[in-house]
Amino acid sequence: MTTITFPLSADTQKQRTTQEPAWIRILLIGLTLIFLTLFLFIPLISVFYEAFKKGADVYLAAITDPDAVAAIKLTLTIAAIAVPLNMVFGIAAAWAIAKFEFRGKNLLITLIDLPFSVSPVVSGLIYVLVFGLQGWFGSWLAEHDIKIIFAVPGIVLATVFVTVPFIARELIPLMQEQGTEEEEAAVVLGASGWQTFYQVTLPNIKWGLLYGAILCNARAMGEFGAVSVVSGHIRGSTNTMPLHVEILYNEYNFAAAFAVASLLALLALVTLALKTLIEFRNQQHQQRGHE
C-alpha cells in the first residue's frame, strides 16, 4: 500500500471549521481501507491468484475444456436474450410511467422492483411450479415433448425474472427528470410518434439505457441461485459459467474452478469500469449543462 499524504497547506487549514483533526481523518481512512481490503480487495485478488496458482497451462486447459466452452457459450446466449428483452421492457415501462400521469403508477413501480426482493432460489422455484413436471403446464409440456425446466428456456426465464428491474429502474427516474416538453415540442412541429421516440427521446436516454444494460448483463451472466434450481446441471448442455464453477469446485478441481471464476471476475471488473466511465461522463455532461 502506498503511503497516504494529506494536503495541509495554510488555506486548506483555514476552512477546517467543518473538518476533523488530522489524526481522526487518518484513523477513519485507515479503518476504511483495512475493512475494504479484508472484505473486497483480497477476495478479488485471491480469485486470480488461485486461478494461476498451478500455472498458465492449467489455466488455459481449464477454460478451453469443451464443457467450459459450452458453459461460456450458454452464458453468452442467455445474456443475449435476457438483456434485449429487459431493454424493450424497460423502455416501454419507463415511457408509460415517466411520460404520462395515470392511477396506480406507484404500485406499478413497486411491482417492477419486486424481483429484487425475491430470493434467487425462490425465483427459480416458481418456474418449476409453473413448467416443471409437477407444475401447472408440466403434463401438457411433456405430452408435446417441450422441455422448459432442466433446459435452456427455463434458464432464460429465471434469468429474465431476476434481471427485470435493472433497466427500467435506470430509465424511469431519468425520463421523469427530462419531462415531456421536448416530446411535446416535437409533436407540435409535426413529428410522428416513432419519429419523436427515435429522434428526441432515445438520444436523450441512450447513456442511461447503456448503464442499465451493463448492470443487467452482469447479473444475467452471473446469476447462480435461480439458474441452479431450474438448470439440472447437465454438463455441456444446461451448465452456465457460474454453475460450471460450482461443479468443478465440488469435484475439488479448484484450479479449474477458479480459472472459470476468474473470467467472471474479469466480467465484473469490466462492468465496474464501464459503469464508472458512464458515471464520469454524466458528471462532465451535467457540469457542461450548468454553465
Partner: peptide
Amino acid sequence: VDALVDLPFALPTAVAGIAL
C-alpha cells in the same frame, strides 16, 4: 476505491463464495 465498492453487486455470487 469508490468504483470497487460496487464489486459485490457485479461479482457473481458463486465466485464470491469460492473466493471467500
